[in-house]
Simulated scan of single mutants.
Amino acid sequence: METGLMRIGVSLPDALLEKFDGIIKEKGYPSRSEAIRDAITSYITYYRWMGDIKGHRVGTIAVIYDLTKHGLSNALIEVQHRYSHLIKYSVHLYLGHEEGFELIVLDGSGQEITELAGAIIAIKGVKFSKLTTIAPDVK
C-alpha cells in the first residue's frame, strides 16, 4: 500500500510519449501515472537483477543505436575495447539509414558483463540495450 505520492515533471519527445500513450490504451491502463509506475518498477527490478549477476556467465547484449548521432560509433568502440576480454563475437546490422543493431556475445565475469551493459546504455544515442545472461553448467 502506498503511503504517499509525489508529483514529478518529466520532459519527453512527442514521438516517445505518443508510443507510450498507445501502449497505455492498448493495455487498458486506467491512467498514464499507473503505467509510468509500472514502467519504473520494471526498470528497478531489471537493474536489481543485473546487480545479482555474479560468477562466470555467458550472454548477449542487444543494442539499437542512432547512426546519425555524431561520435556514437566511436563511443561504442571505446567501451567495447575496455571490455574486449569478455567479447567473443559481435555482429552489426543496419536497420535503414538512421538505426544500427549490434549483438555482442560475451563470456566472463558477471560483474564485468553488467558493467559493460551499463556503460553501453549510458551512451547518448543508444536507443535500446538488453542484457541476457546465464551461468553455464560447466563440469
Rank of each mutant, 00 (worst) to 15 (best):
K139W: 12
I87E: 03
D66S: 09
D14H: 02
K88W: 08
A39H: 06
T114G: 04
L76M: 15
E26T: 14
H70N: 11
I24N: 11
L116H: 13
V63N: 08
A122D: 09
G118C: 07
S33E: 10
L93N: 10
D107M: 08
L86C: 00
R82P: 02
G118W: 08
L131F: 11
W49N: 03
V91C: 09
I8E: 02
I44T: 02
R82Y: 07
E102D: 08
Y83D: 12
I8N: 06
S90C: 02
G96H: 06
F20I: 01
L76C: 03
D107W: 03
A62F: 07
Y29T: 00
W49D: 02
R48C: 00
I121L: 04
G118A: 09
G110R: 13
V79S: 11
E2M: 03
S42H: 04
T68Q: 11
M6A: 14
I113M: 14
G4W: 06
V126M: 07
E115I: 08
Y47R: 13
Q111E: 15
V63I: 15
L16W: 02
H85W: 06
F128Q: 15
R48Q: 06
S33I: 09
D66L: 11
A15R: 13
I123D: 01
L131M: 13
G71W: 08
D38F: 09
L76K: 13
E2D: 05
H92R: 07
L17T: 01
I64Y: 13
T68E: 13
A117T: 01
V126H: 03
L12M: 15
T41S: 14
S33D: 11
T45K: 15
I23F: 11
V63T: 12
T133Y: 01
G51E: 14
K27E: 10
S84I: 02
Y47L: 06
S42M: 09
K54D: 05
G55S: 06
R37C: 04
H85N: 11
R7I: 12
H92L: 08
K19Q: 13
R48V: 01
E99K: 14
T68V: 09
I23E: 04
D107C: 07
A62K: 04
A75N: 05
E99H: 14
I134D: 07
Y47F: 13
P30G: 12
K27A: 07
Y47N: 15
I77W: 07
S129T: 08
G125R: 06
L67P: 00
T132G: 05
Y89G: 04
M1V: 05
V126E: 01
L67A: 04
G28D: 03
R37T: 00
H85S: 14
Y47A: 03
G55W: 02
E34N: 07
W49M: 03
S90D: 12
K27V: 02
L116Y: 09
K25Y: 05
A75L: 05
H97M: 12
H85I: 01
T3E: 12
E99P: 00
S11A: 13
T114M: 05
R7C: 08
I120T: 10
E112I: 02
K124G: 10
I61M: 13
R37Q: 05
Y43K: 11
Y89S: 02
